[in-house]
Design a protein around this nucleic acid. Structure first.
Length: 289
DNA sequence: GTCTCAACAGGAGGGCCGTA
DNA sequence: TACGGCCCTCCTGTTGAGAC
């Protein structure tokens, strides 16, 4: 039930889809010699086409999987993991809801102050599979097929970043809510510094992979970037600890483009307040004016 | 020639809305 | 209520540029 992403989850997706509504032709590519593949193998040179019918199915499956993964954590803290959360005041509209969010209440429509964390799910089938005589045979990891799954794609990364910024610029009500991108693959090296910078800048609190072993034969893959902008979780407990760490203290996102003189003035005024919290509140108030 | 990366293109599915 | 059109989001293959 509450487990990280493994090959068994992908088998579950195919089995569930085949049992409920999908034909094999909607889930697998058919090669020239009649074999059914989840992705075109790198060695395949025959005629190809692009499967579209799987997209929404895997999208929905991975969102539901993410809800299950987070539900146990939420329940223990009297919270709820909710799919498709709408909160218009922070840019989460019915057309573009949050994939998953941890909230104080169970409903889809939420007030900003009742949303504890927002998760954007970017997951896909990671391994390649052959469907033969009703059986699913794993024929290789993502390095052996022509597809480029999940967060390994630059446009998936850009889309996740774009959606997060859209929430951040929708208003100050989103400034207390952490945003996590949940994936099931590593990220490319070209994004190592960028995810760290996004974390330091407060825009996205992490790109988290729930897949502890994305490569076969203990293939080397990144555990985390230098400043933990990307983390690969190897156990549920590790994931829950990271969530606890993230949610334990109330944080505040802020950004600005001001001269050193203006900043100095703001700091000087804020510093007249009595406590650290009051100084911070004054600073945030002034920087947003 | 091969590999990697970013950008682009594209169809399926689903929700919404106007119209008959 | 049914239907069609529009738009958005989903994921995946293709293409071209650049590095080696």
């Amino acid at each position: 039930m509450y487990e990280l992403w493994t090959k068994e989850k992908e088998i579950e997706f195919f089995r569930q889809s085949l049992e409920n509504f999908a034909e094999p032709e909607q889930l697998f590519y058919i090669s020239d010699n009649g074999k059914y593949y989840a992705y075109w193998p790198k060695s395949y040179k025959g005629k190809k086409f692009t499967l579209q019918s799987r997209n929404a199915l895997i999208g929905n499956f991975t969102e539901k999987y993410s809800v299950d993964l987070l539900q146990n954590f939420a329940k223990e803290r009297n919270l709820y993991a909710v799919q498709g959360v709408i909160c218009k005041e922070i840019g989460l509209t019915p057309q573009s809801p949050s994939d998953v969010a941890i909230c104080k209440f169970k409903s889809r429509e939420q007030k900003a102050e009742d949303i504890v964390a927002i998760f954007e799910v970017k997951m896909s089938i990671v391994w390649n599979w052959e469907y033969r005589n009703g059986k699913l045979i794993c024929i290789g990891d993502y390095k052996t097929h022509q597809g480029n799954p999940g967060l390994l794609r630059s446009d998936s990364m850009l889309k996740a970043i774009g959606k997060s910024i859209n929430i951040r610029v929708s208003g100050y009500k989103a400034s207390k809510i952490p945003i996590i991108i949940l994936g099931n693959t590593p990220i490319t090296e070209s994004y190592f510094n960028k995810v760290d910078h996004l974390k330091k800048a407060g825009i996205i609190q992490g790109f988290w992979s729930t897949n502890p072993n994305p490569l076969d034969n203990n293939g080397e893959n990144i555990k985390s970037t230098k400043h933990k902008g990307f983390i690969r979780f190897d156990s549920i407990q590790e994931l829950y600890n990271a969530l606890d760490e993230l949610l334990i203290e109330e944080m505040e996102f802020f950004s600005s483009m001001k001269s050193k003189k203006q900043l100095g003035q703001i700091i000087e005024i804020a510093n007249r307040e009595a406590t650290y919290e009051q100084k911070a509140e004054k600073f945030l108030k002034l920087i947003r004016e």
